[in-house]
Structures are given as C-alpha cells and as structure tokens.
C-alpha cells in the first residue's frame, strides 16, 4: 500500500526532536520532580516509534545505526557499575553520593551518582523497547 505521507513525514521530522528534547528534560527533572530514566526512555522510544510509523524500519535503522541489544548491555553495565561502586567504599550496595559543584553556565549544581544509574535505566528502556518493536515489526 503506497500512500502519500509527505505531511506525516515532514511533521514527524520536527516532532521527533521536540519529543526527544522533552524526554531529556523529563529525564533530568527526575531526581526532584516527577520523571526519570524510565519515563524519559519511554518518551524517547515514543519518538523513535513515530519515525517508524512515518517512514519504515529500514530508514530508521539506517538513521539510528545502533545495535539496540548492545544498548541494553551498556545501560545495564552503567546501572550495575554505579550501584556496585559502593562496594569500593565498603558501604551498602546502592548507596549513592552527591555533592554541590560550581559549574560554568549552570552555577551551583547538585550532582548525584544516582544520575548515572538513571541514565543506565534510560538506555535499557530505549534498548529493550526498540528491540521488541523492531523484532515484532520486522517479522513478516
């Protein structure tokens, strides 16, 4: 079924970046406000699914040439690594650390190790969701 998708495709190209940036915002908001790696990851997946709907599997694979299984692995390693970092300091597993830093442009910023853990979650969610969608969508 060949359809004329110009409107959808043009809108999708713009909307993708809006959703993606919003997902990053949600991701960073996560520590003190509602949001976080899981929701952010799902939003990013939503943006990629929009591209999948507007174009097709091959185009999206060419645009985002990641092996999403590896993305899951990297995400898991990041999360486990952050949690296991506490072993080095002989404090209970999952204990996180934070401190205030004077950063240029941002000013006084609170940095958390929980952030690294959350980015692992983000990668796992994106990797897993896209892998599922690709393998179901790619099945003839």
């Amino acid at each position: 079924m060949k359809k004329n998708n110009v409107i959808l495709q043009t809108t999708a190209k713009v909307t993708f970046f809006i959703i993606f940036l919003f997902s990053i915002h949600i991701f960073f908001a996560g520590h003190f406000a509602p949001g976080g790696g899981f929701v952010g990851g799902l939003l990013t997946t939503g943006a990629i699914v929009l591209l999948l709907l507007a174009f097709d599997l091959e185009t999206v694979k060419a645009t985002l040439p990641f092996n999403f299984t590896v993305v899951i692995g990297v995400g898991l390693l990041l999360s486990l690594g952050t949690a296991a970092g506490s072993i080095l300091f002989n404090v209970p597993f999952f204990t996180h650390a934070f401190a205030h830093f004077e950063l240029p442009l941002f000013g006084d910023t609170e940095l958390h190790t929980a952030m690294i853990f959350d980015s692992g979650v983000y990668l796992v969610v994106v990797g897993a969701a896209i892998t599922i969608i690709q393998s179901i969508g790619g099945d003839e």
């Binding site: 299984t69 899951i72 692995g73 486990l80 296991a84 209970p92």
Partner: peptide
C-alpha cells in the same frame, strides 16, 4: 566487605550483562 552476601547475586548478573556483547 559488608557487601559479601550480595556477590553470589551480582557476579552472575555482571557476567550475564557482559555476555550480551558476545552474542556470536
């Protein structure tokens, strides 16, 4: 080593993750 009791859980988990990179 207060985390010792977690090692039998973490180590298989860690190796499972690493194996994801060597699918073939």
């Amino acid at each position: 080593m207060i985390n010792l009791l977690l090692f039998p859980i973490i180590i298989p988990f860690f190796f499972a993750i690493v194996l994801l990179f060597f699918k073939e």
